[in-house]
Design a binder for these strands. Structure first.
Length: 294
DNA sequence: AAGAACTCCTGTTGGC
DNA sequence: TGCCAACAGGAGTTCT
C-alpha cells in the first residue's frame, strides 16, 4: 500500500487519536512481522504516553514518554484502523470501524487511555515495528542511510545532479532507491517520470550533465516529484483495492494517475498521441509513454 | 561496488 | 465453475 503520501495520510489520521494518549495495553498476536518484535516489546510500550507522531520517508515514528521511539513501517500491505470508544463515535462514528472482531491479520492492537483502539493489520507481513532510544534514532539501522525528504527544502536540480552522478542504473531504479531520495515507490516514480517527460529506462547519470539541451531534465524531475507527492498528500493518498485511511475514509489520488495501471490507454500529455506501455524493471511494473518520455 | 535477481508472505485477478 | 500463474503500494539479502 504505502508510499510517502499514504504514510503521511496515515500519520495525520492517527495523530489526533494517539498523541497525548497513554498506551495502556498492547496486544501482540505473533512473535514477528517481517522481523521479530524487539525484546520486551509489550513491557516497553505499555504505560507510555505518545508525545508526538512523526514521519520520515515511509516510516511512522511515535515518540514515547520513556524517551524511546516506536518505529513502524507498513511494508506492502500494512494498515492501521481506529476503533473509537464504544458509544462515543459521535458525529464521525459512521467513518470508523466499530467491530470488536479480530481479523487473522490483526497483528497488533494498541489500547489507549482515551478508550480508543488502534489496530495494525498486515496480511503479507512485510511491515515491521522496532523500538530505539530517542538519542539513537538517527544512527539506528532504519534511519541511517535514508535519503532526503522529497517534500523538504533540499530537493532541487542540483541535488538530483549530485545524487545521480555516475549512476548507470535506469531512472526508475534510482528513484526507487531510498538511500537517494526517500519516500517514492512504484506508483509515484512512474507518475513523476511521466510528469517530467523522462523515460524510466534512461540512465540516471544522464541527468547529471550541467549544460546542453537536457539541462532542464534534473529541474523538471525535481519539480515533478514534489508536485506529484504534494498533490497526492492533498488527496489523502491513493486507494487501491480496499485500502482505507485510519478513519475509514478513502484517498482519491488514484483517479489522478496519468500512467500507473493504465496500460493501453492514450497518453494524457497534451498533444501526445502515444499509448501507455507496461514494462518490467527491477522486477516491478513500470508504466510510461514511449512517445513523450525521453 | 554497483546493479540486478531473488526473497519474504498472503490475497486477488485474469486467462484457460 | 475451478485451477493456476502472474502480480500486488517494499526493501533486505545474495548473486554477478
Amino acid at each position: 500500500m504505502p508510499e510517502l503520501p499514504e504514510v503521511e495520510t496515515v500519520r495525520r489520521g492517527l495523530e489526533p487519536v494517539m498523541v497525548n494518549a497513554a498506551i495502556e495495553k498492547l496486544e501482540v498476536r505473533r512473535p514477528d512481522l517481517r522481523f521479530p518484535f524487539p525484546p520486551r516489546f509489550k513491557a516497553r510500550i505499555e504505560g507510555q504516553i505518545v508525545t508526538s507522531l512523526g514521519r520520515r520517508a515511509k516510516y511512522l515514528l511515535a515518540d514515547l514518554s520513556s524517551d524511546e521511539v516506536l518505529i513502524m513501517h507498513l511494508g506492502m500491505s500494512g494498515r492501521f484502523t481506529i476503533h473509537p470508544p464504544q458509544g462515543k463515535g459521535g458525529k464521525l462514528g459512521n467513518l470508523y470501524h466499530d467491530s470488536e472482531r479480530v481479523d487473522a491479520h490483526d497483528h497488533v492492537t494498541f489500547h489507549l487511555s482515551n478508550g480508543a483502539r488502534v489496530v495494525y493489520n498486515d496480511p503479507r507481513r512485510f511491515g515491521f515495528m522496532d523500538l530505539v532510544p530517542r538519542a539513537e534514532l538517527q544512527t539506528s539501522k532504519h534511519m541511517k542511510g535514508i535519503g532526503i525528504e522529497p517534500l523538504g527544502n533540499e530537493l532541487d536540480d542540483d541535488l538530483i545532479r549530485t545524487k545521480f552522478q555516475g549512476k548507470k542504473a535506469p531512472l526508475k531504479a534510482a528513484l526507487l532507491d531510498q538511500k537517494l531520495i526517500a519516500g517514492l515507490g512504484n506508483i509515484y516514480v512512474c507518475e513523476a517520470l511521466h510528469r517530467a517527460h523522462l523515460s524510466p529506462k534512461r540512465k540516471a547519470q544522464t541527468l547529471a550533465i550541467a549544460k546542453g539541451k537536457m539541462s532542464h531534465a534534473a529541474d523538471d524531475l525535481a519539480v515533478a516529484i514534489r508536485d506529484v507527492l504534494s498533490d497526492a498528500v492533498k488527496a489523502g493518498g491513493s486507494t487501491l483495492r480496499d485500502y482505507a485511511q485510519a478513519d475509514g475514509s478513502l484517498g482519491y489520488f488514484q483517479h489522478s494517475f496519468r500512467v500507473y495501471d493504465r496500460e493501453g490507454e492514450p497518453c494524457p500529455t497534451k498533444d501526445c498521441t502515444g499509448v501507455i506501455k507496461r514494462i518490467t524493471q527491477s522486477g516491478r511494473s513500470t508504466f510510461f509513454c514511449p512517445t513523450c518520455q525521453k
